[in-house]
Protein backbone atom coordinates (compact mmCIF):
# COMPACT_ATOMS: atom_id res chain seq x y z
CA UNK A 1 0.00 0.00 0.00
CA UNK A 2 1.38 3.40 -0.88
CA UNK A 3 -1.44 5.86 -0.19
CA UNK A 4 -2.48 6.97 3.31
CA UNK A 5 -5.10 9.35 4.71
CA UNK A 6 -2.55 11.13 6.94
CA UNK A 7 1.01 10.83 8.18
CA UNK A 8 -0.15 8.96 11.29
CA UNK A 9 -1.70 6.30 9.05
CA UNK A 10 1.68 5.81 7.38
CA UNK A 11 3.23 4.48 10.61
CA UNK A 12 4.66 0.95 10.41
CA UNK A 13 4.59 -1.36 7.40
CA UNK A 14 8.36 -0.96 7.09
CA UNK A 15 10.43 -3.00 4.62
CA UNK A 16 12.40 -6.09 5.61
CA UNK A 17 15.57 -6.33 3.53
CA UNK A 18 18.08 -9.14 3.21
CA UNK A 19 21.77 -8.58 3.94
CA UNK A 20 23.44 -10.95 1.46
CA UNK A 21 26.92 -9.51 2.03
CA UNK A 22 26.87 -9.37 5.83
CA UNK A 23 25.23 -12.78 6.22
CA UNK A 24 27.86 -15.39 7.13
CA UNK A 25 29.06 -17.80 4.46
CA UNK A 26 28.09 -21.40 5.13
CA UNK A 27 30.05 -24.49 4.01
CA UNK A 28 28.86 -26.10 0.79
CA UNK A 29 25.76 -28.17 1.32
CA UNK A 30 25.05 -26.62 4.74
CA UNK A 31 21.68 -24.96 5.41
CA UNK A 32 21.55 -21.20 4.77
CA UNK A 33 22.07 -18.61 7.51
CA UNK A 34 20.59 -15.27 6.52
CA UNK A 35 20.34 -11.84 8.11
CA UNK A 36 17.33 -9.58 7.55
CA UNK A 37 17.04 -5.92 8.57
CA UNK A 38 13.69 -4.30 9.40
CA UNK A 39 14.09 -0.69 8.33
CA UNK A 40 12.31 1.21 11.10
CA UNK A 41 13.91 4.45 9.95
CA UNK A 42 11.18 4.39 7.26
CA UNK A 43 8.59 5.50 9.82
CA UNK A 44 7.12 9.06 9.72
CA UNK A 45 9.74 10.70 12.00
CA UNK A 46 12.50 8.25 11.10
CA UNK A 47 12.54 5.86 14.02
CA UNK A 48 10.86 2.79 15.51
CA UNK A 49 9.47 4.98 18.31
CA UNK A 50 6.66 6.24 16.09
CA UNK A 51 4.87 2.95 16.73
CA UNK A 52 4.72 3.15 20.56
CA UNK A 53 4.21 6.95 20.54
CA UNK A 54 1.08 6.59 18.42
CA UNK A 55 -0.23 3.66 20.47
CA UNK A 56 0.39 5.38 23.81
CA UNK A 57 -1.37 8.59 22.73
CA UNK A 58 -4.33 6.68 21.28
CA UNK A 59 -4.66 4.56 24.42
CA UNK A 60 -4.60 7.69 26.64
CA UNK A 61 -7.25 9.32 24.43
CA UNK A 62 -9.49 6.26 24.53
CA UNK A 63 -9.19 5.89 28.30
CA UNK A 64 -9.99 9.58 28.79
CA UNK A 65 -6.66 10.32 30.45
CA UNK A 66 -5.71 12.69 27.62
CA UNK A 67 -8.09 15.46 26.53
CA UNK A 68 -7.80 18.02 23.74
CA UNK A 69 -5.32 20.76 24.62
CA UNK A 70 -3.62 18.78 27.41
CA UNK A 71 0.11 18.93 28.06
CA UNK A 72 2.09 15.69 27.75
CA UNK A 73 5.29 15.39 29.77
CA UNK A 74 7.83 12.76 28.80
CA UNK A 75 11.32 12.11 30.10
CA UNK A 76 13.15 10.90 26.99
CA UNK A 77 16.64 10.75 25.59
CA UNK A 78 15.45 11.46 22.07
CA UNK A 79 13.55 9.33 19.59
CA UNK A 80 10.42 8.83 21.69
CA UNK A 81 10.29 12.57 22.23
CA UNK A 82 10.55 13.26 18.49
CA UNK A 83 7.80 10.73 17.74
CA UNK A 84 5.56 12.10 20.50
CA UNK A 85 6.20 15.65 19.32
CA UNK A 86 4.92 14.75 15.85
CA UNK A 87 1.89 12.86 17.19
CA UNK A 88 1.14 15.63 19.73
CA UNK A 89 1.28 18.27 17.00
CA UNK A 90 -1.11 16.38 14.74
CA UNK A 91 -3.50 15.44 17.58
CA UNK A 92 -3.49 18.85 19.27
CA UNK A 93 -1.42 18.49 22.43
CA UNK A 94 1.47 20.40 23.91
CA UNK A 95 4.60 18.33 24.62
CA UNK A 96 7.27 19.01 27.24
CA UNK A 97 10.36 16.75 27.21
CA UNK A 98 12.76 16.32 30.10
CA UNK A 99 16.08 15.10 28.79
CA UNK A 100 19.73 14.92 29.78
CA UNK A 101 21.82 17.58 28.06
CA UNK A 102 24.29 15.01 26.67
CA UNK A 103 22.18 13.95 23.68
CA UNK A 104 23.07 14.92 20.13
CA UNK A 105 22.24 18.45 18.97
CA UNK A 106 20.22 17.13 16.01
CA UNK A 107 17.74 15.52 18.38
CA UNK A 108 17.25 18.80 20.21
CA UNK A 109 16.78 20.71 16.95
CA UNK A 110 14.27 18.15 15.70
CA UNK A 111 12.25 18.29 18.91
CA UNK A 112 12.05 22.06 18.76
CA UNK A 113 11.13 21.94 15.07
CA UNK A 114 8.17 19.67 15.86
CA UNK A 115 7.14 22.18 18.50
CA UNK A 116 8.20 20.42 21.70
CA UNK A 117 9.50 22.32 24.71
CA UNK A 118 12.62 20.94 26.35
CA UNK A 119 13.73 20.99 29.97
CA UNK A 120 17.30 19.79 30.41
CA UNK A 121 18.66 17.84 33.33
CA UNK A 122 22.42 18.26 33.78
CA UNK A 123 24.44 15.40 32.25
CA UNK A 124 27.05 15.51 34.97
CA UNK A 125 24.47 14.92 37.67
CA UNK A 126 23.30 11.70 36.06
CA UNK A 127 20.05 10.13 37.13
CA UNK A 128 20.03 11.85 40.49
CA UNK A 129 19.74 15.22 38.81
CA UNK A 130 17.09 13.92 36.42
CA UNK A 131 15.08 12.76 39.41
CA UNK A 132 15.44 16.13 41.09
CA UNK A 133 14.36 18.00 37.95
CA UNK A 134 11.42 15.66 37.43
CA UNK A 135 10.22 15.96 41.01
CA UNK A 136 10.25 19.72 40.75
CA UNK A 137 8.24 19.74 37.50
CA UNK A 138 5.74 17.23 38.86
CA UNK A 139 5.16 19.36 41.92
CA UNK A 140 4.61 22.48 39.81
CA UNK A 141 2.33 20.88 37.18
CA UNK A 142 0.19 18.11 38.65
CA UNK A 143 -2.21 18.32 35.67
CA UNK A 144 0.36 17.31 33.04
CA UNK A 145 -0.07 13.83 31.58
CA UNK A 146 2.86 11.45 31.55
CA UNK A 147 2.68 8.47 29.22
CA UNK A 148 5.68 6.81 30.89
CA UNK A 149 6.98 4.59 28.10
CA UNK A 150 8.91 2.33 30.51
CA UNK A 151 5.74 1.05 32.14
CA UNK A 152 3.07 1.72 29.50
CA UNK A 153 1.55 -1.52 28.18
CA UNK A 154 0.57 0.29 24.96
CA UNK A 155 4.29 0.59 24.17
CA UNK A 156 4.73 -3.20 24.02
CA UNK A 157 1.27 -3.66 22.48
CA UNK A 158 2.28 -1.50 19.49
CA UNK A 159 4.91 -4.10 18.67
CA UNK A 160 2.68 -7.07 19.50
CA UNK A 161 0.06 -5.80 17.07
CA UNK A 162 2.25 -4.36 14.31
CA UNK A 163 5.99 -5.17 14.33
CA UNK A 164 5.47 -8.86 15.17
CA UNK A 165 2.80 -9.61 12.55
CA UNK A 166 4.73 -7.68 9.89
CA UNK A 167 7.85 -9.74 10.56
CA UNK A 168 6.03 -13.06 10.44
CA UNK A 169 4.21 -12.06 7.26
CA UNK A 170 7.42 -11.06 5.50
CA UNK A 171 9.60 -13.87 6.92
CA UNK A 172 7.55 -16.97 7.81
CA UNK A 173 10.82 -18.92 8.21
CA UNK A 174 12.12 -16.59 10.96
CA UNK A 175 14.25 -18.36 13.60
CA UNK A 176 15.70 -15.39 15.55
CA UNK A 177 14.53 -11.88 16.37
CA UNK A 178 17.14 -9.41 17.63
CA UNK A 179 16.37 -5.91 18.92
CA UNK A 180 17.64 -3.26 21.30
CA UNK A 181 16.77 -3.23 24.99
CA UNK A 182 15.82 0.18 26.39
CA UNK A 183 12.21 0.51 27.50
CA UNK A 184 12.09 -3.19 26.44
CA UNK A 185 8.83 -2.50 24.53
CA UNK A 186 10.09 -3.74 21.13
CA UNK A 187 11.38 -7.04 22.51
CA UNK A 188 8.47 -7.68 24.86
CA UNK A 189 5.75 -6.98 22.27
CA UNK A 190 7.37 -8.51 19.19
CA UNK A 191 8.87 -11.31 21.27
CA UNK A 192 5.54 -12.36 22.79
CA UNK A 193 3.83 -12.34 19.40
CA UNK A 194 6.52 -14.44 17.73
CA UNK A 195 6.64 -16.89 20.66
CA UNK A 196 2.94 -17.56 20.19
CA UNK A 197 3.32 -18.16 16.46
CA UNK A 198 6.77 -19.65 15.83
CA UNK A 199 8.02 -22.79 17.50
CA UNK A 200 11.51 -22.49 19.01
CA UNK A 201 11.88 -18.83 18.05
CA UNK A 202 14.91 -17.21 19.69
CA UNK A 203 14.35 -13.72 21.10
CA UNK A 204 17.67 -11.92 21.54
CA UNK A 205 18.35 -8.59 23.25
CA UNK A 206 21.24 -6.21 22.57
CA UNK A 207 21.79 -3.45 25.11
CA UNK A 208 24.24 -0.59 24.79
CA UNK A 209 27.11 -0.56 27.29
CA UNK A 210 27.69 3.06 28.10
CA UNK A 211 30.62 4.71 29.81
CA UNK A 212 30.36 5.06 33.56
CA UNK A 213 29.53 8.77 33.39
CA UNK A 214 26.25 8.05 31.67
CA UNK A 215 25.10 5.69 34.41
CA UNK A 216 25.66 8.33 37.08
CA UNK A 217 24.51 6.03 39.88
CA UNK A 218 25.78 6.39 43.42
CA UNK A 219 24.87 2.89 44.45
CA UNK A 220 23.28 -0.32 43.16
CA UNK A 221 19.91 0.42 44.76
CA UNK A 222 19.44 3.39 42.42
CA UNK A 223 19.25 0.99 39.48
CA UNK A 224 16.08 0.54 37.48
CA UNK A 225 14.45 -2.26 35.51
CA UNK A 226 11.51 -1.08 33.36
CA UNK A 227 8.10 -2.32 34.49
CA UNK A 228 7.53 -3.72 30.99
CA UNK A 229 10.52 -6.06 31.24
CA UNK A 230 9.79 -9.77 31.52
CA UNK A 231 12.95 -11.86 31.26
CA UNK A 232 10.99 -14.99 30.28
CA UNK A 233 10.30 -13.47 26.85
CA UNK A 234 14.04 -13.45 26.07
CA UNK A 235 16.41 -16.31 25.31
CA UNK A 236 19.62 -14.30 25.45
CA UNK A 237 20.83 -10.82 26.25
CA UNK A 238 24.06 -9.23 25.02
CA UNK A 239 25.83 -6.14 26.31
CA UNK A 240 27.50 -4.37 23.37
CA UNK A 241 30.40 -1.98 23.80
CA UNK A 242 30.53 1.40 22.09
CA UNK A 243 33.44 0.17 19.97
CA UNK A 244 31.58 -2.89 18.65
CA UNK A 245 28.45 -0.80 18.00
CA UNK A 246 30.43 1.75 15.97
CA UNK A 247 32.28 -0.98 14.04
CA UNK A 248 29.00 -2.66 13.04
CA UNK A 249 27.27 0.63 12.24
CA UNK A 250 30.07 1.40 9.79
CA UNK A 251 29.85 -2.10 8.30
CA UNK A 252 26.13 -1.62 7.71
CA UNK A 253 26.74 1.37 5.47
CA UNK A 254 30.05 0.14 3.97
CA UNK A 255 28.88 -3.35 3.07
CA UNK A 256 25.11 -3.13 2.69
CA UNK A 257 24.49 0.57 2.10
CA UNK A 258 22.32 0.98 5.20
CA UNK A 259 23.02 4.27 6.96
CA UNK A 260 21.87 3.70 10.54
CA UNK A 261 22.30 5.03 14.07
CA UNK A 262 24.62 3.34 16.55
CA UNK A 263 21.95 1.35 18.37
CA UNK A 264 21.36 -0.54 15.11
CA UNK A 265 25.07 -1.37 15.01
CA UNK A 266 24.82 -2.79 18.53
CA UNK A 267 21.87 -4.93 17.43
CA UNK A 268 23.71 -6.15 14.32
CA UNK A 269 26.61 -7.18 16.58
CA UNK A 270 24.32 -9.51 18.55
CA UNK A 271 22.61 -10.70 15.34
CA UNK A 272 25.98 -11.66 13.85
CA UNK A 273 26.91 -13.54 17.04
CA UNK A 274 23.81 -15.76 16.84
CA UNK A 275 24.18 -16.13 13.05
CA UNK A 276 27.76 -17.38 13.38
CA UNK A 277 26.69 -19.82 16.10
CA UNK A 278 24.07 -21.22 13.73
CA UNK A 279 26.75 -21.70 11.05
CA UNK A 280 28.94 -23.55 13.56
CA UNK A 281 26.03 -25.76 14.60
CA UNK A 282 25.14 -26.43 10.96
CA UNK A 283 21.60 -25.11 11.51
CA UNK A 284 19.39 -23.09 9.20
CA UNK A 285 18.76 -19.57 10.50
CA UNK A 286 16.75 -16.56 9.40
CA UNK A 287 17.82 -13.81 11.77
CA UNK A 288 15.67 -10.67 11.65
CA UNK A 289 16.90 -7.57 13.46
CA UNK A 290 15.83 -3.97 13.86
CA UNK A 291 17.32 -0.86 12.29
CA UNK A 292 16.02 1.59 14.92
CA UNK A 293 16.77 4.83 13.10
CA UNK A 294 18.95 6.41 10.44
CA UNK A 295 22.35 7.92 11.11
CA UNK A 296 21.39 11.51 10.37
CA UNK A 297 20.85 12.52 13.97
CA UNK A 298 24.31 11.33 14.98
CA UNK A 299 26.49 12.87 12.26
CA UNK A 300 27.58 15.67 14.57
CA UNK A 301 29.26 13.13 16.86
CA UNK A 302 31.87 12.60 14.14
CA UNK A 303 31.81 8.89 14.97
CA UNK A 304 31.21 7.77 11.36
CA UNK A 305 34.75 8.71 10.35
CA UNK A 306 38.28 8.43 11.76
CA UNK A 307 39.61 5.53 13.80
CA UNK A 308 37.43 3.39 16.05
CA UNK A 309 39.26 4.78 19.05
CA UNK A 310 38.45 8.34 17.95
CA UNK A 311 34.81 7.35 17.54
CA UNK A 312 34.76 5.70 20.95
CA UNK A 313 36.09 8.89 22.50
CA UNK A 314 33.59 11.01 20.56
CA UNK A 315 30.71 8.97 21.98
CA UNK A 316 32.08 8.74 25.52
CA UNK A 317 29.52 10.13 27.92
CA UNK A 318 26.79 10.31 25.26
CA UNK A 319 23.56 8.41 25.03
CA UNK A 320 24.17 6.88 21.62
CA UNK A 321 21.19 4.55 21.58
Amino acid sequence: MARYESLLDACGGTPLVGLPRLSPTVPEGAPPVRLWAKLEDRNPTGSIKDRPALYMVREAEESGRLRPGDTILEPTSGNTGISLAMVAKLRGYRLVCVMPENVSSERIQLLRMYGAEIIFSPAAGGSNQAVAVAKQIAAEHPDWVMLFQYGNAANARAHYETTGPELLHDLPTITHFVAGLGTTGTLMGTGRYLREKVEDIQIVAAEPRYGEIVYGLRNIDEGYVPELYDATVLNRRFSVSTRDAVLRTRQLVDVEGIFAGFSSGAILHAALAVAHEAVKAGKRADVAFVICDGGWKYLSTGAYGGTLTDAEEALEGQLWA
Binding site: P75, V131, Q149
Partner: peptide, 10 residues
Protein backbone atom coordinates in the same frame (compact mmCIF):
# COMPACT_ATOMS: atom_id res chain seq x y z
CA UNK B 1 17.29 0.57 31.44
CA UNK B 2 19.59 0.90 28.44
CA UNK B 3 21.31 3.83 30.04
CA UNK B 4 18.46 6.24 29.39
CA UNK B 5 18.11 8.74 32.16
CA UNK B 6 14.47 9.40 31.42
CA UNK B 7 13.46 6.38 33.47
CA UNK B 8 14.85 7.91 36.61
CA UNK B 9 12.86 11.06 36.15
CA UNK B 10 9.83 8.98 35.25
Amino acid sequence: AGGALGFAAA
